[in-house]
Design a protein around this nucleic acid. Sequence first.
RNA 1: GUGCCCAUAGUUUAGUGGUAAAACUCCAGAUUGUGGCUCUGGCGUCGAGGGUUCAAUUCCCUCUGGGCACCCCA
Length: 451
Amino acid sequence: MPKSSKSKIKKTSKGKVKNVKSKKEKKTFQSPKGMRDILPSEQSQWEKLRKTVIETANFYNFSRIDTPILEDVEIFKRGTGIYTDIVEKQMFVLKTKGRDYLALRPENTPGIVRAYFENGLSRFAQPIKLYYFGPFFRYEQPQFGRYRQFHQVGFEILGGEDNPIYDAQAILTLFRLIEDLKIKNLTIQINSLGCKNCRTAYTKKLQEYYRKFSSKICKDCRRRISLNPLRLLDCKNENCKEIKEQAPTIIDFLCSSCRSHFRGVLEYLDELELPYVLNPCLVRGLDYYNRTVFEITAEGYDLSLGGGGRFDYLGELITGKKNSFRAVGSSLGVERIIELMNAKEIKGLTVPKAKVFLIQIGKPAKKRAFSLIEEFRNAGIKVVESLGKESLKSQLKLADKEKVELALILGQKEFFEESIIIRDMKSGVQETAPLNKVIDIVKRKLKKKTK
RNA sequence: GUGCCCAUAGUUUAGUGGUAAAACUCCAGAUUGUGGCUCUGGCGUCGAGGGUUCAAUUCCCUCUGGGCACCCCA
């Protein structure tokens, strides 16, 4: 589009006539709110994390699964729960041309359970252990440790029995992963939410208790009494806190099987000497949990790094059919871990640097250099270059910046003589070698250096 | 969804009602094909749109984005 140089006549509010150059509207792009670029400089931390995740998952026999980033909204409404904040106000929902509604996944457990049933994973030996790593989306105000696009690692143990050892294993796996990233002083907050039966009994009591104080508690809590009573225990309002302290605790209402299940989980944690704290107020924001719920926190970091729990009813919620699905899982906030790694100056994973820089001068030499690099590649020697550059000076400068040991110089003269200059960057000593011998000589020189 | 703070070169910052400055980075150069020091030059119109004004990067409004808190969570 040609730039318009016309002037517009414009009246100001005082009726004066103004001469304003019409300018093209400048469109500037910023990343969407709460979503950010993970730049090359940050990738080493991510690489380290990914590697540790794979190692941990492999050791505990979790297989990787990747599910779509979009799922039918209904999955989350039914699974995560219609009265959770996540579903109520934090989902990115989009309407397709086919007019169905898809949501950018705010979490993965319902999607995993969907995949489990859809792909007949229940026909493999149970339980089946899966892990995932990927982006998740929640529409909320970004702040410390919170983004609209964030990443989670998760471990799920699906199918089989509701043996408490699986709960302990889900916790253990997450715990070891964080530990292996050299993050110390971890604590597991743990609680049991019971099953349908004991939870109903408990919530009744809880509602009764809170109704007595309905004039004193905050308006959110007033709403929670009937909609989502367990979340009353989550409230951080000062008045509510006082009332909360005297509230009945769920542990006292657990039925005998839930009680022994919970005891079982704790015994397994004791066996491994994992540091846990009973937290009767821990309920978590997702509706599908039953029995065990937990969170992992690190000393000096206010937010929880991850958590999870048992979700035996989710199979029924997703499929709409009664079934004997049993499952437990855990997940981790990747950004929060990375923040901690940075705060504690924990090193990431760096790719080994090249020790050789190839310099070329002139067109024929540039061409030859292009293929010479392939010869080095075949010999297993990493070479850096700046093939777009022309002057020797600027290339040598780069070689210096890259901190390589050797610079190879292939100029006009060398090209015609079929030779190449090998320069030791530290001493500045250089020698001319036949081009067809260069790989062997470089190999030898590098070996000597490492000795 | 609510409240507070913020937005100037790639980065970190300075500054002013009359069209911008420093440091570092980056690029190019300092006579013949050789780096790390030094020197010279280059890269911005001040997040976007609108308003007030003779004149706004500077004042006001809106939007977008950043930071933090509430809510909630990873």
